[in-house]
Design a binder for these strands. Sequence first.
DNA 1: ATGCTCCCATCGACAAACGATGGGAAAGGC
DNA 2: GCCTTTCCCATCGTTTGTCGATGGGAGCAT
Lengths: 111, 111
Amino acid sequence: MGKAGSLELLPGTLDLLILKTLAAGAEHGYGIASRLKALSEDVLQVGESSLYPALQRLLLKGWVKAEWGASDNNRRARFYTLTAAGRKQLSAERDEFDRLILAIHKVLNAT
Amino acid sequence: MGKAGSLELLPGTLDLLILKTLAAGAEHGYGIASRLKALSEDVLQVGESSLYPALQRLLLKGWVKAEWGASDNNRRARFYTLTAAGRKQLSAERDEFDRLILAIHKVLNAT
DNA sequence: ATGCTCCCATCGACAAACGATGGGAAAGGC
DNA sequence: GCCTTTCCCATCGTTTGTCGATGGGAGCAT
C-alpha cells in the first residue's frame, strides 16, 4: 500500500478527497489531480493510476456521473459530477474520517 | 481493506498506533489491542489478524523486540518493546502523519 | 517534426487489513 | 469436577487500495 519513503496519500482517503473536490463543481480527472495537489500545497499527489480506478469505483456506486465534453483548451475530456447520493456520501465519509482522526489523536496525545 | 459500514481503523496508521502504544512501556499483543481500544474510547478496534502481522512487520524492521514472559495474571505472553530505532521511527511516522492530515484538512476546508 | 503539456485508461504487482479459524492455559462460577 | 469466559498466541485466504509501468491521442509551441 503505502511506501517506505514518504507517502503521497493516506490510504483510504482518496474517495473522500475526490468527492470533496467535485463538490466545488464538475471536473475532469486530470483537473481533479491538479486541484488536489494545489489545494494541499504539493503534499497530496494522486497518480493517475490511483485516480482512474477510484473514479470507476465512484461511478459504480453512483456517487458521481460522467459526461464527455471539452476542457478549457478544447481538448476532449470526461467531466465528473457529484450526484445527490455522492453529496450524501461525502458528508458521511467526512464524519467518519473526523471520528477516526479524533480517536487517533487521543492515542497519539496520551501520556 | 476498509469496510462499507464503518471502519475501525484508518488504513496506514496501524504501525504508528502500535509504536505509540509501546512507547508507554512493554506490552503484549492482546494488551496493545486493549490499550488502543481504551485510549480511543472504543473507536479504534484492531483485530488480532491485523495486529499480529503488523507486529511481525515491526519485528522484521527492528523497530520492536519481543520477549516471552508472564503477564499480569501469570499467563504466558510475548512482550514487545520499542527499540531505539523504533523510537526514531515513531517520531518520523508521526511527523509524516501530521503532514498528511494537515494537507487533507486544507482540501476538506477549502471552499 | 519534435517535444511538451494535457487527458484518457489499463495491467500487474504488492502491501495492508480483515474474517475465519485454529489452539491453549488460567480464572471463576456452578 | 466441569464449563464458560477471558486472556493470549498465530496463520491462511481473500479483498481492496495504491502505485509503477505502459500505452495512446490530441492540441500547442519552437
